[in-house]
């Protein structure tokens, strides 16, 4: 997909808001990277595009937050934040849908991803596979 801006972070937020579950990928070595950056950490190419990713990931770690860092999140407390791996390339930090309670989480489990809204912003959310 052709990004509408040269700032890779802005482009990714815009794509998520438009309903595209995607990440930044290097057009030269095809490695995915996240958070977005100007150069590829693998080959230092400046060429990139946003690449659609499948709505599934592997659970790496999680933490339940008991005190909100900002008023925008206060209504959600307690909530669980996870690190998930897209393939074996990129790590994503995302909110976990309450349908997946902490007791149901285990390292390496397969989870689903869906675009949802957290504090008014469209972003991937971890849900049951």
């Amino acid at each position: 997909m052709a990004p509408s801006t040269t700032d890779p972070s802005v482009a990714l937020w815009q794509a998520w808001a438009a309903g595209h579950l995607c990440l930044q990928g290097c057009t030269d070595c095809s490695r995915l990277r996240h958070p977005p950056s100007q150069l590829c950490p693998e080959c230092h190419s400046t060429h990139w595009s946003l690449v659609d990713v499948a709505p599934c990931a592997t659970l790496v770690s999680w933490s339940t937050v008991h005190r909100a860092p900002a008023p925008a999140f206060a209504g959600d407390v307690p909530y669980t934040v996870a690190i998930v791996s897209i393939g074996d390339a990129a790590l994503l930090e995302a909110r976990v849908d309450p349908a997946l309670p902490p007791a149901a989480l285990s390292p390496g489990m397969q989870v689903g991803l869906t675009l949802g809204e957290i504090a008014g912003r469209a972003m991937p959310i971890v849900r049951p596979a």
Binding site: S9, L12, W13, H34, P35, P36, S63, V65, A68, P69, A70, A72, F73, D76, Y79, V81, L92, E93, A94, R95, I118, A119, R121, M123
Partner: peptide, 8 residues
Amino acid sequence: AFELASGP
């Protein structure tokens, strides 16, 4: 921003 967005 991509970490902050989920409220850590």
